[in-house]
Design a protein around this nucleic acid. Structure first.
Length: 566
DNA sequence: TTAGGGTTAG
């Protein structure tokens, strides 16, 4: 570097190329490289190749390597690690590997790590293993390359074997090793070894590294230990996008939807901006809580920041998540607009629409969507038929429902699961075909399922059939004798009440008391400007409760049981 | 003067 008054300017062509590369200005870097007053020696070639590879333009980097060879500039041990990384086909790496042998560079550990990395990427596992075993000196980067390479191609067990061997050979772990192994243990759901790595990380002083903390948050989150995840998150000084996304996902994966939205709000107040991953993690929370206002805000954020598009056109996953949010919140109009605007749709996009219409009782629209899906040559899957059958159930399309149950296997090759049978039982039961529903429930060629029998018990209550209700209730007790939830007791007691058998209704309540079965209180919620309020039966905690009750009564907002409690 | 490795969704 030379000092020119008050700024420092790079003094050589390589320094200039490096500077432009680091600023992602490859066009400028090429201009410097082509400057006729400078010699294009091995240093200059190494710098330009490294620049392209580092900026994700491997093919361009490879072209410069070819030019280098054609003009007779000899590559050296600094050229090859980049060139090897730039290869994207097996035969290309093989060819370069051949050159390395000719030049006596095949045992260089830097080149070796790049070879291991690339061979594993291009389906050359055996070659990667051979390179690894034959290297006389194996440093921590090389071990990490092997572990990561195996992980990326899904060979998690092999990655763990390498990690164990690393310990046996006395290689000290780097922070890179710990993040990788944590990610592997997370995929395997191995919380015990994960905790052990957490201990090692703390001992080695890696806790201050944000990437290591993020990997720990992800592990604890995915293993449903949200409190541990939160503790690590709070300890990070400079939280980055990974930190926020990991902690938000951790809460959503544990169905803590309130927590998800609370953290998202905090994130908006930080200097880190949400991205597509944040949005896809937060939207299901809005769907579950029917928090339409938050969902709309997120949709707005997505539009303003152009997040709905990626290099392939529409970001299908994100658009599906937005559509699902609107559908679950009952806004089928908005879901439909997004659906129509999406140029790329997948089977999930169709399923979301069918499910949404079915959930809100629009049976005709759901089936119409199904027919459009078939016309568009999209193959329906297991989820599609849950939507279709649930549409038939909610709309009372008994004849069509029966027909779909047969057709789904014969015509579309989708074998009915317990969810499909539950829809059919529910449909027959609601429509009053209790005998047929019971016969079918007994004949189902799958393991007995509590929800299915509960659906039938619900139908018995609806139609006041205490005789069949008794039989079904007995079946439910057999299925879950000890852990019988409160739901079936409540249904049974309510059923006796409906048919005027009050003594038996009281008897069921007495049994519940004896067995200490508690009823989960009925609850409802309402979204106001300052947040989401959940009301349980008998709950009088909200500070503007009376005003709220007056306001909401007119809209029929509350669940019956909550209304009775006021 | 220059080189190789890590964490988040679905």
């Amino acid at each position: 570097m030379v000092t020119s008054g008050f700024i420092h300017l790079p003094s050589s062509i390589t320094s200039l190329i490096n500077m432009y590369s680091r600023c992602n200005q490859m066009e400028e870097a090429v201009l410097v490289f082509r400057d006729p007053y400078h010699e294009r020696n091995v240093f200059a070639y190494n710098a330009i190749i490294a620049g392209f590879v580092a900026n994700g333009l491997a093919a361009d980097g490879f072209q410069f390597y070819k030019r280098m060879r054609s003009v007779g500039v000899m590559p050296d041990k600094f050229t090859f690690p980049c060139v090897v990384r730039a290869c994207c086909e097996f035969m290309e790496v093989r060819k370069i590997h051949g050159c390395l042998f000719k030049m006596g560079l095949e045992l260089n550990v830097f080149v070796g790590s790049a070879l291991v990395n690339t061979y594993l990427k291009v389906d050359g596992t055996e070659d990667a293993e051979k390179v690894f075993e034959e290297l006389p000196e194996r440093d921590v980067v090389l071990w990490n390359a092997m572990i990561n390479g195996y992980t990326k191609i899904g060979h998690l067990n092999k990655a763990v074997v390498v990690f164990k061997r690393m310990g046996e050979e006395g290689i000290s772990l780097s922070r890179f090793t710990t993040t990788s192994i944590l990610s592997i243990l997370t995929s395997m759901g191995d919380i015990n070894n994960g905790r052990a790595i957490h201990g090692i990380v703390t001992k080695m002083g890696y806790s201050s590294c944000v990437a290591v903390s993020n990997a720990l948050i992800d592990m604890y989150g995915k293993c449903k230990h949200t409190e541990d995840a939160l503790m690590i998150f709070e300890m990070i000084n400079e939280k980055d996008l990974f930190s926020w996304n990991s902690i938000i996902s951790a809460h959503e994966q544990c169905d803590d939807h309130d927590g998800t939205l609370r953290l998202f709000g905090k994130m908006l107040g930080s200097r880190v901006l949400p991205d597509v991953i944040t949005i896809t993690a937060v939207l299901p929370a809005c769907s579950h809580l029917a928090a339409l206002m938050h969902g709309r805000e997120i949709h707005g954020y997505m539009i303003v920041n152009g997040l709905g598009k990626n290099e392939n056109g529409d970001d299908v996953l994100l658009n599906n998540a937005i559509m699902d949010m609107y559908a679950k919140c009952g806004c089928m109009k908005n879901a439909d607009i997004i659906f129509d605007l999406m140029r790329n749709k997948d089977v999930a996009s169709w399923n979301i629409m069918i499910m949404g219409y079915a959930m809100h009782g629009y049976g005709t629209e759901a089936l119409d969507m199904f027919h459009r899906m078939c016309e568009a040559q999209i193959k329906p899957d297991v989820v599609t038929f849950v939507g279709v059958l649930s549409a038939c159930s909610h709309a009372g399309f008994v004849h069509q429902g029966r027909s779909f149950l047969t057709r789904m296997e014969l015509e579309f090759g989708v074998i009915p699961t317990i969810e499909h049978y539950t829809c059919i039982i529910d449909m027959l039961g609601r429509a009053g075909h209790l005998g047929e529903a019971y016969d079918l429930a007994q004949r189902i060629p799958l393991e007995d399922n509590l929800i299915l029998w509960m659906a039938l018990l619900g139908a018995c209550r609806l139609h006041g059939n205490a005789e069949l209700g008794n039989v079904v209730g007995e079946k439910i007790t057999q299925l879950e004798p000890k852990h019988c939830g409160s739901g079936s007791y409540i249904l049974m007691s309510s059923l006796y009440g409906v048919v005027g058998r009050y003594e038996e209704a009281l008897e069921v309540r007495r049994t519940m008391k004896e067995q200490n079965v508690k009823k989960t209180p009925g609850c409802s919620w309402i979204e106001l400007k300052d947040g989401l309020y959940v009301f349980s039966m008998g709950d009088r905690t909200h500070h503007e409760l009376n005003a709220l009750i007056n306001c909401l009564c007119g809209f029929g907002y509350f669940h019956d049981e909550v209304m009775h409690s006021f």
